[in-house]
Every structure is written in C-alpha cells, then in structure tokens.
C-alpha cells in the first residue's frame, strides 16, 4: 500500500501536535507508581455494595468467633414442651421440633458453616495458585499433567464425588469436609491461575526482568504471580459461598457434619420432618445461610469490577 501513495512515508510517524509536549511534561516521575490494588481500592470504596457486604461479612465473622455475645440462651438446652412453640420474649424466632431456640441455634451454627467455607477456600486458593502458576509458567510435562487432572475432575460433579468420599470418612468434622470439598474444587482455580500466568508470562516486564538477569523463579514470584492473581481472588470470594452451600447440601443428605455439631446445614436437615407444620424452622437457618453467601457473592462482584479496568471505565 505505501507504494501507491508517494506521501505515505510521512504517515508512519504521528504528527508532533498529536502528542503535545505538555502531556509528557505533566507526568511526575518522582511520584510513586500506583499499583492495580490502589486503583482497585479507589474504585471499590465508592460503591455502597462494597461497604454493605464487608460489614455483613465482618458481622458474620464476629458471630462465628464469639457466638455467646449474641445469644444468651443455650442452643442445646431444649425442652420438648416447647416443641414448635412460636416466638416469645427472649426467643425471637420460636422453637424447633426438639424445643430448641431457633435463634440461638442459628447463632451457634455460624461457626461450623463459616469454618468449612473459609478453610476450603484457603486450601483451594493456595493449591490452585501454586499448581496453576507452576503449570502455566514452566509448561511442558507438568502443564500437561495438571491440565489433564483438571479435565478428569471436571467430568465428576463435585457434589457427587463428595458424596462418595464423605460417606466413607471415619470422622466427619468441619476440617474433613473442607478437605473433601477442596479436593474436587482446586482444579478450577488452578485452571484460571494457569490461564492468567500464561498471558502474563510473555509481558514486557518479564522480558525486562530477564534482561536485568533476575532468576526465572524470582520473576515468577515477584512479577508474574502478583500480576495474575486478580481473577483468582474473585473466584475465591465466590467459591467461599459455594462451599458453605455444599456443606449444607451434604448435611441435608445426612453425610455432612454429625448431628452433634451445630451448623446451618444440620438445622435445615433437622427441619425436614416439620416442613408441613412449621416451615419457619427451615426458613430461618436457610435465610442465614443465603444472606452469608450473598454477602460473599456481592463482595466478589465488586472486587471483579474494581480489578477489571474495562469494567471500571464502563461505570
């Protein structure tokens, strides 16, 4: 094409007036460079849903840590005489079939449910980040193996796999449930991390670090991982919610936490029998669970928008 136009040569370089010198001069090089996270924080803190979800999560964590601050009634001292009794003074949500205080049971059940969610998320995130970044960065045989393992797990629905493993566990505690759930969930995070590392691996800053003589592993640790971690953080926030839901599902099937441990899933399971007469027994713990999961989903949504420059520009 340039041959057709004798003046084409001049079009290769932008005219000087198109990049005014003042724009370049205005850059203050002494100022510290702003990180993605600082930009993200600025984008997040103006959104009400960020503050609402954070406040909710903070409240839930405090309830999980210090349940006795919120409920004066004992959740385990139940009187069959109160079976299915309605709300009354000091017992705002009424009683279960066994005559236990519903409100106290929800408050004391928070701990187990949140523990399962948090623990599984931490396990999955760390495994996924380590495996995914090694596979994406070094490639080769390791990458093939990790990708195939991920594909195989993909063919087994998490809940189905968890049902088989849970039913044979000798001891069912929040820790073992978290382990089983994360066993089936880590390939998803690894896959996302791998994709992000793959695209970051060939960036200019990596080439620059290679030129400066930084070792390969150090580049991965200092530059590639911090620049690829954003999508994983988003998925981790969302999966915390799904783990809490999964615990409830397993308990509903009778292969979650043993009845002795108070959790929302167990309370929902116990409410099955009194569904027709007194649906509140089921609705209140289910609502507590939904609000918790919703808070994490909202937070994940805000974080996703904040970390994605295109979404920031669209707002």
């Amino acid at each position: 094409m340039p041959n057709k136009n004798p003046n084409a040569q001049t079009h290769y370089v932008a005219a000087l007036e198109e990049t005014p010198v003042e724009t370049v001069d205005r850059l203050d090089e002494s100022q510290k460079a702003r990180s993605t996270w600082a930009d993200a924080w600025d984008a997040m803190r103006v959104r009400p849903s960020f503050w609402i979800s954070s406040a909710l999560i903070l409240l839930i964590v405090i309830v999980a840590l210090f349940p006795s601050l919120f409920a004066q009634v004992s959740p385990t001292q139940c009187d069959l005489g109160d079976s299915h009794a309605g709300p009354e003074d000091g017992h705002p949500l009424g009683y279960t079939r066994q005559g236990c205080d519903i409100y106290a049971r929800i408050i004391f059940g928070t701990q187990a449910s949140v523990t399962v969610g948090l623990l599984a998320t931490i396990l999955v995130t760390f495994t996924g980040i380590i495996v995914g970044s090694l596979a994406g960065y070094y490639g080769g045989l390791l990458d093939s193996i990790v990708s195939r393992i991920g594909d195989i797990f993909f063919a087994v629905p998490t809940v189905l796999g968890a049902i088989v493993l849970m039913s044979v566990l000798p001891e069912r505690t929040p820790i073992t449930i978290a382990l089983v759930l994360s066993l089936f969930a880590w390939p998803q995070i690894a896959r996302i991390m791998r994709g992000a590392v793959l695209s970051a691996r060939n960036s200019d800053y990596v080439t620059a670090s290679v030129a400066l003589g930084v070792s390969k592993f150090r580049i991965l640790l200092r530059h590639v991982v911090p620049n690829s971690i954003a999508p994983v953080i988003v998925i981790a926030t969302v999966s915390l919610g799904t783990f809490i839901v999964a615990e409830a599902t397993l308990s509903f099937l009778g292969i979650g936490l043993p009845p002795g441990i108070m959790s929302w899933g167990n309370d929902i399971d116990a409410a099955k029998s009194s569904l027709r007469t007194n649906p509140q027994v089921l609705l209140y713990p289910a609502a507590a669970l939904s609000v918790t999961v919703l808070a994490f989903l909202m937070l994940g949504d805000v974080v996703r928008d904040a970390l994605d420059p295109e979404a920031r520009a669209r707002r």
């Binding site: 919610g241 839901v245 599902t249 509903f252 289910a286 669970l289 609000v291 949504d301």
Partner: peptide
Amino acid sequence: SYLIFATPTFVIGV
C-alpha cells in the same frame, strides 16, 4: 440470580 446462587438447590425445591 445472586439470590438463587446463594440458596442451596434443595432449599429452592422446598
């Protein structure tokens, strides 16, 4: 859709 995500399947059924 977030509310549906946040509700276990069996609770939706119930």
